[in-house]
Design a protein around this nucleic acid. Structure first.
Lengths: 209, 209, 209, 209
DNA sequence: CATGAATGAGGCTTCATTCAT
DNA sequence: GATGAATGAAGCCTCATTCAT
């Protein structure tokens, strides 16, 4: 395998710095605070230099967001034990998702902004690729539900819909925390959500949390 | 009661035009497309004229959004039969909410943006007042859950949390439709959501939809 | 003599209100705070109504300033005893001028602004008429100096120049007070100035203050 | 010592152009004519470019004014012979001040405007720093008077007050010239002023001009 | 006459992007 | 390649003046 050349290493480093700076600014000061000037400075690169690594501002932000989405997906994957039984796995996914969102609380705000942009036909294309991560996550949940259904552990339901709702509740929970409206600990919020979806399980005597 | 004078009528008409223009722009082209110049033009008013009706851009947008929130709240109220039994009322609320969100699909996007702004401490105050409508809605749902709980119809649950989750699922559903990702009819989405929360009811044999 | 008609009385009252409002605003908040809107409101007249009494903003301000200049001139006249001897009269004039400027401290600022405008050839004409009051004042002082000279009381000097310098010192004193840089009482400032011009008098043993 | 780089030279040139343009506009058309647009054009720079050299309009004007004040101070310093005797030095200062003001006649107008702004409590802070030059000048005069007093050459007087009055007369003289009201040559005005303050000297036989 | 809503020119400032060095 | 000065299009807001009612 070709060892990365000196040039490639530098390019990579610069790209990383820029993305880091973008995320940091996004997190600390919000979308409107992200100016090329600011990001460049934070990354220790000249303003004009950004354009060597990104086509334009939109693409830079897009890439930063995609990176976060990707990280979150991975974080969740890591936390799920493929050998566990469906309900346990579901709990793991939900818990991992809440944790991950909490950790990325600050940028989550912007990440969720794409939901908003997706409603605008003109901008749709620009952000569409980020949906991939959402879809993947929904399918992960759905697979668990399907398995539970086949094993006759879960109540009969439209698993696609179920996955969707569970994800929405998790996101809502994270958003509420982000807005400072939660009032409970993350752990309490987690328990609450799991409690709410527990009726999915037919024989509740068998449940652990 | 004093009949509105000619002047008042005109004032009202102008204010309406501006709000309409704001909503329309907001809906069609998104938040960043809302320019004083543009709104003025769309409303058939000179640029400077806006400031006769609104203190500044923020207040204009705020008013437009609040109006929508208020309309939605009222639309839902109208659709709920206070005499109906808890589960029926819950279904009415959810259905009404979905309908209302569908009707205001375009601006809903922006309305939900406040979730985003609320995460930015600097802008928090500006939008905080809009939370009133959310709170009111959550309490409406919670009251129904409480009543059902007291009547021993609903499964035991934290009603505040329950209200929160139901609302999140409804909003998520609307958002999905808005993003063009639903694929089903509104009616199908409604059934799906209601189906998902049906386990709340203890004796499901008694259920109508 | 024709008794002023009802209409004329009203016109006069309105004009007065507007000038008063102009002066008040000028005094309290400075030149840039004088907007037609504000003055109209303060005067209890509709914005458009101003144009029934003044050709435009400039003329309104001009008239207000002229009024003040005129008042100051009169105030000084009142304070001078035509029968007194030259040095006493000089002291009276200077004292009266300082008092009057102190009383009109706030608007004096704007009044002196015309010195500034007079340097701009384009605006010169607009304010030139206000010079009348300055000229009159200088002549008043000069007449006193002339008389003192003829009576052999004052040291030989160019009386026109002397009048000019004395006036400048008085204005400077008032300005210093206005800028909050004086630190002394008005009375102390008065004494100081008179002390400084005392060498004008040949035989200082005869002096009272 | 580091030779100024090409970049620094250019930066300096731009700054100079802008300040020059500001002064010119200030001089020719007055304070209100100073527009960012206009200054930029006059300096041959794009509108937005100004902000590379000045934080905002206020700072730009402030800098221009301070520059003038500083130049004038230096011009006067250059003209005073530290070895000369008090009265000669006083004459040198006054002459230099009149010359300097004559040379900067055009902008002097605006420089004196700070007297006006200083009367407005809201703007006071903004211009306060310019008072430094005035204070320095007053102290220069005062030091001369003090020395003359100690040497028993000057008549007894409050030297601080004396410095103040002399300065006011000089400024007044310059202003009168600026307003086109002088009618005499600068030299005549100079003589006149010096003549007026001559009584400060006790033994006038010793005087040269 | 009187009103004040409406106009629209004009001012300040920001910022993505380009390009000479 | 890298830099950052320069550009200029927008954006928000103010306010003297006009004019329909």
């Amino acid at each position: 395998m070709a060892r990365p050349s000196r040039k490639e290493i530098l390019q990579d480093f610069r790209t990383r710095s820029l993305l880091e700076a973008t995320r940091k600014t996004l997190a600390n000061e919000g979308f409107e605070a992200v100016t090329m000037e600011r990001v460049a400075q934070e990354a220790g690169i000249a303003k004009g230099g950004i354009y060597l690594y990104f086509r334009n501002k939109d693409q830079m932000i897009f890439t930063a967001l995609e990176e976060i989405a990707s990280e979150m997906t991975q974080e969740i994957d890591t936390r799920v034990d493929p050998g566990a039984r469906p309900w346990e796995r579901l709990c793991q996914v939900v818990s991992a998702q809440l944790d991950s969102m909490e950790r990325h609380k600050d940028v989550l705000r912007t990440l969720l902004l794409i939901r908003w942009h997706m409603g605008n036909s003109r901008q749709r294309k620009k952000w569409q690729r980020l949906l991939k991560y959402r879809t993947r996550h929904l399918e992960r949940i759905r697979a668990i539900l399907d398995e539970g259904l086949r094993a006759n552990i879960f109540r009969l339901l439209d698993t696609a819909a179920g996955a969707f709702y569970i994800n929405e509740m998790a996101i809502g929970t994270a958003q509420r925390r982000m807005m400072g409206l939660s009032g409970s600990s993350l752990e309490a919020d987690r328990r609450s959500l799991i409690e709410f979806i527990k009726p999915l399980v037919l024989d509740q005597k068998t449940l652990s949390t």
